[in-house]
C-alpha cells in the first residue's frame, strides 16, 4: 500500500511544518509514504473562480503525479474537496477516476481508514478552539453541521480528545464560516476580513488560546486577520498537534 503525499501549494510555500507533520504522523503509523516531486497544485485556485478550462493542465499534472499510488493523502480539506468533487476539467479516464476516488483528507484517513486509537507522543496542554472549515464539515462530512438534525459527531474532535492535556472550547457560532472562501478573500476583502475578525473574537470569548483546523488556507486568513489587529490568539494545523508539536 503506497501513499502519495500531496502537499498543497499554500502549505508547500508558507507552512512547510504542516507537510512535515503530516508525513511524520503517517510514518509513525507505519504507512509507506512517498512525496511525488513534480507535484504543484490541484487546480482549485482557477476552479474556485469558475475558470475550469484554465485549470485543465494543472489537473492533468496532478493526476500524472499521483495515478500510480494506491491512496493519496493531503492535509487540506478544500483541496481534497476539489479533487474528489470538482476535478472535472480533464477527461475522466480510469487514472483520473482512480485518483479522485482514492484521495483522502488527513483527518478522514486517520479516523476512518487507520482508525487511530491513540497519539501517545502528543501533548497539548492548551485551550483549543477547533475551526471546522466549511469544506471539511459540509463537503467532506467531518461532523454534523449545526444546520442539520441528527446525532452529533466530529471526527477531528474525536482525534483531538486523544491528545493529552488538550481542552476543547466552543465558540457561540460553532461552525460559522471564517470568511476565507478562496477567491472570496480578495474579491470581497471587507466582508472577508470582518468575518475573520468575528471568528477570532468568538473563539477568544470562548477562552481559546489556539485555533486548530484541518484547513491551512482558513488558518492563513485568520492568522493574517489576527496579526493585523494584534489579537494574541495562535494557530496550528491539526497535523501538528496530533504529531506532538509543542506549542
Amino acid at each position: 500500500m503506497r501513499i502519495g503525499l500531496f502537499v498543497p501549494c499554500f502549505i508547500d510555500a508558507f507552512y512547510p511544518q504542516v507537510g512535515i507533520a503530516t508525513l511524520e504522523l503517517l510514518e509513525r503509523f507505519g504507512c509507506d509514504v512517498d512525496y511525488p516531486f513534480d507535484q504543484t497544485c490541484c487546480g482549485q485556485p482557477m476552479v474556485n473562480s469558475g475558470c475550469h478550462a484554465e485549470a485543465a493542465a494543472t489537473e492533468q499534472l496532478f493526476v500524472d503525479n499521483f495515478a500510480d499510488y494506491d491512496v493519496i493523502v493531503a492535509p487540506s480539506g478544500s483541496c481534497v474537496h476539489q479533487i474528489r468533487d470538482n476535478l472535472t476539467a480533464v477527461e475522466q479516464t480510469a487514472a483520473v477516476k482512480h485518483v479522485r476516488e482514492n484521495t483522502f483528507e488527513l483527518v478522514e484517513y486517520l479516523h476512518d481508514v487507520l482508525k487511530v486509537e491513540a497519539f501517545p507522543w502528543a501533548k497539548f496542554p492548551h485551550r483549543v478552539g477547533y475551526h471546522d472549515s466549511c469544506n471539511t464539515l459540509r463537503n467532506l462530512g467531518h461532523g454534523k453541521p449545526s444546520e442539520l438534525r441528527g446525532p452529533d459527531f466530529s471526527k477531528p474532535r474525536a482525534l483531538l480528545h486523544k491528545v493529552e492535556g488538550i481542552e476543547l472550547v466552543s465558540p457561540s457560532r460553532p461552525d460559522e464560516c471564517c470568511g476565507f472562501g478562496g477567491t472570496f478573500s480578495v474579491t470581497e476583502p471587507e466582508v472577508s476580513g470582518r468575518m475573520g475578525r468575528d471568528k477570532i473574537a468568538d473563539h477568544g470569548r470562548a477562552g481559546a488560546e489556539y485555533i486548530v483546523s484541518a484547513d491551512t488556507s482558513c488558518l492563513m486568513h485568520q492568522q493574517g486577520c489576527a496579526k493585523r489587529i494584534g489579537a494574541p490568539i495562535q494557530f496550528k494545523h491539526i497535523a501538528e498537534v496530533l504529531n506532538g508539536s509543542a506549542a
Binding site: F14, P16, G19, T187, E190, Q223, G224
Partner: peptide, 24 residues
C-alpha cells in the same frame, strides 16, 4: 496562489511569514 490584483489580501490582513526552512 490567489488571484490578488491590487493586493486585496493585504487590505485587511497580514501576510504569512516566509518559512526559515524554505518550502516543504
Amino acid at each position: 496562489a490567489l488571484y490578488n490584483k491590487l493586493n486585496a489580501w493585504g487590505q485587511v490582513r497580514d501576510l504569512p511569514d516566509v518559512p526559515a526552512e524554505g518550502s516543504f
